[in-house]
């Protein structure tokens, strides 16, 4: 009985999903005083270095982006598709360096039941992705702060604020 792996059976996504689950929920990254903020910053940094390196692999042979908006659009479409197999559902901007990316069924939240009681755990599942976006932008020459919020379970928003260095 041989396994016939389908081209996109979803099996190859599972290791990352489980690893991410382990990062978030196991005690390995927790410091001795169990400071949740420190856990979040570690997760964010893991995401940052992943995103920073991944973007280098993805855009090996592509020309420079025209402007900031195009870069963000790339994040919404191709970057998101490469990682989460879907595009960002909604992108809004005030044209002054703030962008809001909305994902209506975020992969890492889709396995959590959508009741209010799990809401407090939301930030942990988003920190890695925040870091990833920040890292990707950093390697494209854009310094930013990325914050995520979740109000109802699989939906979440990422706020990207571009910090202009003087």
């Amino acid at each position: 009985m041989a396994v016939q792996p389908q081209p996109f059976s979803g099996a190859e996504e599972l290791p990352l999903e489980l690893l991410h689950g382990e990062l978030v929920c196991s005690e390995v990254l927790l410091s001795k005083d169990k400071d949740i903020n420190e856990l979040l910053s570690k997760l964010e940094f893991i995401g940052f270095s992943t995103g920073y390196r991944l973007i280098e692999r993805l855009l090996k042979e592509s020309p420079r982006f025209k402007d900031e908006l195009e870069t963000i659009k790339f994040i919404c479409k191709d970057f998101w598709t490469a990682i989460y197999k879907k595009q960002i559902d909604n992108l809004r901007t005030n044209h002054q360096g703030t962008y809001v990316l909305q994902d209506n069924s975020f992969k890492f939240l889709s396995r959590i039941s959508a009741t209010k009681q799990n809401l407090e755990h939301g930030p942990k599942f988003l920190a890695y992705t925040c870091g990833m976006v920040r890292g990707a932008l950093a390697n494209l020459g854009i310094a930013s702060v990325v914050i995520a919020e979740v109000t109802t379970m699989p939906t979440c928003r990422f706020h990207i604020t571009i910090t202009r260095s003087v």
Binding site: E12, P15, L16, L58, E61, S62, P63, D78, T81, A82
Partner: peptide
């Protein structure tokens, strides 16, 4: 041309 993404399977393993 602007965004050439390698095949998704490879991206997945690299991401991991």
């Amino acid at each position: 041309q602007t965004a050439r993404i390698a095949d998704p399977k490879k991206v997945n393993s690299e991401l991991f």
